[in-house]
């Protein structure tokens, strides 16, 4: 089973044309809120995660995963050749959206100031395409969790979803300042600010120069 996940803050509209161009016959997903990068801890792409039948991670390549490369292909071939893993005890499953919303609302009814609950509820609404419902929750969460790149990124994504590019980028920059090595955030800012450098072709020379400039400005060297 091949799953492709687009890490695009702009969501389905950004990813869909590329899946169409690729005539994708595999499972095509999108992760506009970086839920996967938060859960697995990656800050660059492209990545490959090989997960067995029991849901256990058997191999990962963070950065540079490309099935056209021998290194990546060898890992995939070896993984697929392995004997199937027998199912063990059922692994815990995440609650459905409706269960999650119900849980988080219950938490917030008892603890109206619970910023983490607001953040998570806002992210569920945002993923469901309800930025208006998400906005007040994410604003509160970002204000209460000023040191959380996740909270700042979520609010930035919500602002972008509502079409407020200027405020959205400013918020993404707050997230990047808190997590300056996070290229998933950094490059999404570039895409919003300089779409012409990404469509119809990616300007890799521009990206290298932009990265050099930004790292120098941040005092991180190049």
């Amino acid at each position: 089973m091949f799953l492709a996940v687009a890490m695009d803050a702009s969501g389905i509209p950004a990813a869909k044309p590329h899946y169409a161009d690729a005539k994708a016959t595999y499972v095509t997903l999108v992760d506009p809120q970086n839920a996967l990068s938060d859960a697995l801890g990656f800050k660059v792409i492209p990545n490959g995660f090989l997960i067995d039948e029991a849901g256990v991670l058997q191999f990962m390549q963070v950065g540079g995963f490309d099935v056209k490369r021998q290194r990546s292909m060898t890992a995939v071939e070896d993984f697929l050749a392995r004997a199937p893993v027998k199912a063990g005890a059922p692994a815990p499953k995440a609650p459905s959206d409706s269960e999650r919303i119900s849980q988080l609302k219950k938490t917030l009814s008892g603890e109206p100031g619970n910023a983490e609950a607001k953040l998570q509820l806002g992210k569920v609404y945002l993923r469901q395409g309800k930025p208006d419902a998400a906005m007040p929750l994410l604003k509160d969460a970002a204000a209460s969790m000023a040191k959380s790149p996740e909270a700042q990124f979520a609010l930035g994504s919500c602002l972008l979803a509502k079409g407020d590019k200027k405020a959205g980028v400013a918020q993404l920059r707050k997230a990047l300042k808190l997590d300056s090595k996070n290229y998933v955030i950094r490059k999404q800012i570039w895409l919003v600010e300089h779409p012409e450098k990404f469509h119809p072709e990616i300007d890799w020379g521009w990206q290298r120069e932009q990265l050099r400039k930004e790292l120098a400005a941040e005092g991180g060297g190049g």
């Binding site: 089973m1 091949f2 799953l3 996940v5 687009a6 997960i51 067995d52 039948e53 849901g55 999404q188």
Partner: peptide, 16 residues
């Protein structure tokens, strides 16, 4: 979790 029971190759990419 919907894909448990199958070998999964999870590939992360982006349009940027």
């Amino acid at each position: 979790s919907e894909f448990r029971g199958k070998k999964v190759i999870l590939f992360t990419w982006a349009s940027w």
